[in-house]
Design a protein around this nucleic acid. Structure first.
Lengths: 267, 267
DNA sequence: CGCTGTCTTGAAACTGCTCAACGCGTGTGG
DNA sequence: CCACACGCGTTGAGCAGTTTCAAGACAGCG
């Protein structure tokens, strides 16, 4: 069934998509009357001077604190995930942080095993929170950037909440795939969209509040239906993005929230 | 089974608990070395001058925008809930906002029906976001308050995510009850803790990602086990808080995050 | 007093979970 | 060079927990 696709999918996937942050490309005039849906600002260049740049390899864990005091992070490229583990082996990937996203230690709940780990190789700016807070207070541009980044992440969390709380397994998986396409997708020569799947099955399952087995089954079903194919373990190709998006009620919101980087092409 | 409790429960519950924000009571020296778990600051008094105070009755919906532009809210007393509704009748209560919590329009995802409604009667400060953003940029105290409030809410969302994604129905209900106790609980004369349950069954279910029927059954089971009794529709009494807390793996985190107001007594 | 909306409860259906087996690619040591 | 173990993903069968649907109890309100 999927043989037709993979014949096309293998070749173009040789190129690397590395979740790099695109150039600003402010489409300020795109929708001037909309109250929400404003484009996220680019990371203020001034920030870099006050931070240390951390290169993270896939799977690497970042310490949540900076020698005992609160830290803050801004993702430059790659992606991070925040996951919580509770006593009973219960694990939940709370959020995935993409380029431009911000994180501070206090975002992680106390009295729980929280970890921030790299989902794909990339660069992260690391601050002492006190320093970043001072920047936020003194530089309006940084403040605006920070507030908007946090707001966007909060809105995404709301969608994620909806997905985990209310969607069935197929909808959840479709939701996540749409998210990935919007973040890392590139048009494939044969018509579909190729994208990265940086998380392991287990991590995906923990992100979606599903069992790893169930997730695997669900993806197999999507593959069997011809919507999806994955030639490589960490790559996949959707034949028809519209059809995939139709599987999740959250598609419009996802497009509004994630659609910045390669989304222009994907739509 | 529950008759023994209700004999005690009815009387003391005549008093009203109205989710009022307590006096600051900064226990600054309580845990000076802890990096997280810092006590939330009181709402800066200066804020009130730049806001309009909205009195909300239970069930009332607050418009998310202020004549077309982005708005922001700070809860003074009572509680709000943010809920999303997607095409397929799918409804999720994303967050409950307690006194001290902040909200801005951009926290709600675009392209989804988002509503902010009062869960119990109370007062809310409403700002034009541009005005609050200016305050945040100019007054360090406001900035600190705002950032910390947002961080605390984010941390609570993470726990909520874990609950919805990984807990079974009893754990979820226990989690929510612990949350309520920590927010509105008062020691009852007979030994237990009495607290408010401002949400309807449907709203609770939508908050916990459960079916309303399942929720009802779960609560009945808790009642049958003697842990819980509710004399009134919107009131309840836990006989043994420790036992209730033992039902949810998130209890320590909840106590760290919510335990400010009547928590001193509850523990 | 009857109405309506909320809550409860039961029985049946179903979705997703558990557990266990297997395939596959990779690294390691004989 | 091969054998083996290991991690990871897949798949099947059986089961448990949740949802669904429908009926009934209860309180608030006109």
């Amino acid at each position: 069934m999927g043989g037709v696709l993979s014949a096309c999918g293998e070749k173009p996937l040789a190129m690397t998509f590395d979740l790099k942050r695109e150039e600003p490309v402010r489409h300020a005039s795109a929708a001037p009357s909309e109250v929400s849906g404003s484009a996220p600002a680019a990371i203020p260049p001034g920030l870099k001077a006050h931070a240390s740049t951390v290169r993270a390899r896939r799977g690497q864990t970042l310490a949540l604190t900076l020698d005992g005091s609160e830290a803050a992070f801004v993702v430059q490229s790659g992606a991070l995930m925040l996951h919580l583990t509770l006593p009973d082996e219960l694990r939940q990937v709370v959020a995935i942080l993409y380029p431009g996203d911000v994180f501070r230690t206090a975002f992680a709940p106390p009295a729980a095993a929280a970890h921030l780990s790299a989902v794909s190789a990339g660069e992260v700016l690391r601050f002492r929170w006190s320093a970043l807070a001072r920047l936020v207070a003194s530089e309006p541009e940084v403040a605006r950037y920070f507030e908007d980044a946090v707001a966007g992440q909060t809105a995404r969390q709301a969608i994620h909440m909806m997905a985990v709380g209310r969607f069935d397994c197929r909808q959840r998986v479709a939701t996540f795939l749409v998210e990935l396409v919007l973040r890392t997708g590139v048009r494939a020569p044969c018509g579909g969209v190729a994208f990265e799947m940086p998380l392991s099955r287990t991590d995906m399952a923990d992100y979606l509040g599903l069992n790893a087995d169930t997730l695997s089954r669900t993806m197999s079903r999507l593959r069997a239906s011809g919507l999806l194919s994955h030639p490589d373990r960490h790559r996949a190709l959707v034949r028809d993005f519209e059809a995939l998006a139709a599987l999740t009620p959250a598609a419009p919101s996802l497009i509004a929230l994630h659609g910045e980087t390669p989304a222009g092409r994907a739509l």
